[in-house]
Design a protein around this nucleic acid. Structure first.
Length: 269
DNA sequence: CACCAGGCTCCGA
DNA sequence: TCGGAGCATGGT
């Protein structure tokens, strides 16, 4: 267990934080990030530590045992949920990609979100970046990397029509323009006060409290962000009656992810 | 054919 | 501040 960093691929990829990883049907996953594609099985997890990009992406250097203890100490009722999802990691995704992804996720369902993201990369992604260094990992240059903010900022709503993302198209374009112009500096939000970071993101048309905190948690790895969606809204009173997310401090995002995974499992049977 | 999907904007109290 | 309709689209 030690050499795998406790990472569980299924828990990590199916907890709703990302939309570009797909199960291969045999316990492994194939996906894309940072201009690369990767196919990986649980047995190949130890290989990740030798690759600087994937080591960071899978957050192998964060002490999740300590964070999990912090969460459980703040809310003992979460102990069962946290144990069940202890192999889940908060991926260090690209900030722009995460923001864009969760703008597209609003009032939408996961299969359709996945389709929109796929078409977004297929239609507007690229060009591919240099191939990753050779090694034992089954990785390659992504032929359709997630489109940059600059690329999308130059697009019109008609250009996004093939995505079939509906009213979200103008939200994505507004976000792209604000990021590409520098009006919003995503990296600067990584260490800004939480309320300031939220307020900055919510100046984007189509970005409210939920999407803003998703962008902060998944895109900037801000574990103090707490994206309250319909699941959490329903699960909080049921599993954590009277608990204020503030008690989790800088592990609030991880706490909500444990709760989300747990609530979904229960709701789906 | 209704209803819903990891919300948000806009509008009227 | 708060509640509710409207939003585009595809799946069930």
């Amino acid at each position: 267990m030690q050499e795998t960093y406790g990472l569980d691929l299924a828990q990590t990829f199916t907890c709703g934080q990302c939309f570009r990883w797909h199960p291969d049907g045999r316990g492994g996953f194939t996906g894309a990030a940072g201009g690369r594609t990767l196919s990986i099985t649980p047995a190949e997890i130890p290989l990740l530590e030798k690759d600087p990009f994937w080591r960071t992406y899978f957050d192998l250097d964060t002490d999740y045992d300590a964070l999990r203890e912090q969460v459980c100490a703040a809310a003992p009722a979460l102990r069962e949920a946290a144990r069940a999802a202890q192999g889940m990691r908060i991926l260090r995704q690209d900030p722009w990609e995460a923001l864009c992804t969760f703008i597209l996720s609003q009032n939408n369902n996961i299969p359709r979100i996945t389709g929109i993201i796929t078409r977004l990369c297929a239609c507007l992604g690229g060009p591919s970046e240099p191939a990753p260094p050779p090694g034992p990992l089954r990785q390659a240059a992504d032929p359709h990397p997630f489109p940059t903010a600059g690329r999308l900022a130059a697009c019109s709503p008609e250009d996004l029509a093939p995505l079939r993302c509906g009213f979200r198209a103008r939200y994505v374009l507004d976000a792209a323009q604000k990021v590409a112009s520098g009006q919003i500096n995503l990296q600067a939000l990584r260490h800004a006060p939480l309320d300031e970071a939220r307020a900055a993101l919510q100046t984007i048309c189509g970005v409210g409290p939920k999407v803003a905190d998703c962008a902060l948690l998944y895109g900037l790895h801000r574990m103090d962000a707490f994206p309250v969606d319909v699941w959490i809204r329903r699960a909080m009173p049921m599993y954590l009656p009277g608990v204020d997310p503030l008690v989790f401090g800088d592990a609030a995002g991880l706490a909500q992810q444990y709760l989300f995974a747990y609530a979904r499992t229960r709701a789906c049977g």
